[in-house]
Design a protein around this nucleic acid. Structure first.
Lengths: 217, 217, 217, 217
DNA sequence: CATGAATGAGCGTTCATTCAT
DNA sequence: GATGAATGAACGCTCATTCAT
């Protein structure tokens, strides 16, 4: 459904038609950043990956930084748009949280490079300290927090926990699951789609029901 | 008690006595890495922070990389030792999880530089891909997973959620809370010790009881 | 005739036209290596001598080592080609040996820097131990040895001396004459062209006729 | 006979008794210079080879340069003394030349490290340009030249070749034979002592009798 | 004598960025 | 638009040398 903006991300099968050099460069940058990290990626690597001369990168982007910024802005905004649409929907809070979890983990399976860059290169260190990017990431937390607050107001969710702290935990749980898959820290149960579904279930169940058996008050 | 190895971390009030240059360098490196990130930190910055000639760094460490590796190994192992002691204790699973959460968030309040380096410079970026470091981090997850599994076996915790997935979520929640504080993504309720206590409560409550009110199955 | 490749070596009078930067760099490197030795030559010296930014050196060559290797390969092969042509000619062995001696000593007078680098920086120490370079130098010895062996087979030269040992002596005599001129160890008779001619005569005469007077058996 | 000064050079079997640190350092330096070249040899390598702390090197020698200079002076002078004794002897010129050739090639077989350092590190490279060292090497040439001149005056050797050029050729032939053995450029006939004897015979025969058969004028 | 911690000049190399073509 | 030659700031690292102990 709302996956259109995500689906337009680069795929080997869709190598961007000639002439759209700018997109070619961005896609190449995502791949190279994912592979070598921002600092390890040379502008010439990106150009080579895009099949162009590296001087051309500077026609479309002011500098290497702007590449990362652009990736972040364009892709993150597209991603946020989907999240906001989920938030604005008529479903229950539980349903919305499940949708957000599924969106994030699905995005990773479909576009691992995209997610790696986001998580490892942007959600990181000094560049991330820039207020603009912090605010952008804050919008994700606020969106999830709105789901939680709405649930609390409607009585669907308990009110004695801070909505913002709770949503930090929610996003953090998802991020760590992705990280562990990227790095192979742990073997997750199942594989591919199955692992993803199980991860979604676990996070949502945990988040809503907790680990303690229901029998205990 | 078990905080001895942690407590000996640098404090402005304790500028390390003469002769312990190696420690001075490591402490300086932690501070500079925390401030500027690994790539942004020049060896000469670290030497200046330690108040020594930069050549001396190479007397004690093979290269800049080894600085980070050493920090990781020495500090992370000290940290893990405390976690393992918690795991081995006689308390209930809930108590142990609370203790781990408190340990992590307390460590951040007391040694923010240490934690920043760990989370931002080691837990991300390519250097983390090295098997040795992945295994080291894996030990943390395994430790927490053991707490969860023990709880599941004793009936204290529900058994229909995968222990490892659950502990990924648990650690992830804590990491994101720290990150959000470092970057100021969100204003957490309270401040200092209070904020920390509230964060611990939220994560543990969420993890154990979930967001859904107890009344609902 | 066959001196084309040699003749294109740098001369102050021929500062190499714009665009042929690679050649400019190699020529500059030869001059600086000759003046200060490989270890004493800074990359920035070479760049300054070539009138370019030192970064450009790395555009054309992988590193400082490759400069020396390239000089060796390109120039040595050009030199060897001339030697091989002499070997293949129809002249007597004595004539060929005289031609080789003249070639070597003439090359030094015309291109002293070239020869200095070859003799002092390449025919030296660790870099010279690389099999590829040893083999390249071996080709010179083999070429001269072929002249000697042919002379022995035709009866022009005596057969009771090993051809390879003999040619080692031949080349060694010439090399030492060059060295003594470079370093001014000894005052050679005559000057410039005359000294060269006398050196050629002495080496060839010695090599063919020996120091002992013909009258003595 | 006159080999005493040479024979006192270091041998694995005679590791210099305790206390004679200065000699230990010099011997170690010779070994390390021979193995890695002057530039490639660190002062700490030499100290390690000598089994002492590297600071001690500076008690006995002003700096690294002085090590090489000392090796050169002490060993070269000892070597020269033997040569001068040969020159002063009552033998024929031919006998003396044979003795010099044998001395040089024998020295290499017995003390290859010593010879390598002399030929590769001192006989080349810029340090050799220092007048003092040039003069020292010049003394060897002058000694051999004196043998030749004496032979010419007594009628034992032909007079139409310049004595100094001739002795350059003589020494050069010997040096190249050593070099070719060090580097393995060529397979010499025989092995060890035999190869050496054959080399001596070839150089002396060549030098005295030439390659052309006696029958031809 | 002996040690090795401490210093810092010096240099090779990388790579983002500019710009003439 | 497109290319890649050209530039040079920046930085990691080596290692000879000094000196307190």
């Amino acid at each position: 459904m709302a996956r259109a903006p995500v689906a337009q991300l680069p795929t080997k099968a869709d190598p961007a038609p000639r002439g759209r050099k700018r997109e070619r460069i961005l896609d190449a940058a995502i791949r190279v950043f994912a592979r070598r990290g921002y600092h390890g990626a040379r502008v010439s690597d990106i150009a080579a990956e895009a099949g162009i001369a590296y001087g051309l990168v500077y026609h479309y982007f002011k500098n290497k930084d702007e590449l990362l910024d652009t990736i972040f802005e364009e892709r993150w905004n597209a991603f946020l748009a989907v999240v906001e649409r989920i938030v604005a929907g008529p479903e229950s809070s539980a349903e919305k949280l499940r949708a957000v979890a599924a969106l994030i983990l699905f995005a990773y399976r479909r576009h691992p490079d995209w997610v790696k860059v986001l998580v490892f290169e942007i959600g990181r260190s000094s560049r991330f300290s820039e207020p603009e990017q912090i605010r952008a990431v804050g919008r994700l937390f606020q969106a999830v927090a709105r789901i939680v607050r709405a649930g609390q107001e409607s009585g669907e969710l308990r009110e004695d926990l801070d909505a913002e702290l709770a949503c930090l935990a929610f996003i953090g749980a998802l991020e760590t699951m992705i990280t562990s898959q990227v790095l192979g820290v742990m073997q997750l149960p199942g594989a591919g789609e199955d692992a993803e579904a199980e991860a979604v279930r676990t996070v949502v169940e945990l988040f809503l029901g907790g680990l303690a058996p229901r029998g205990r008050p």
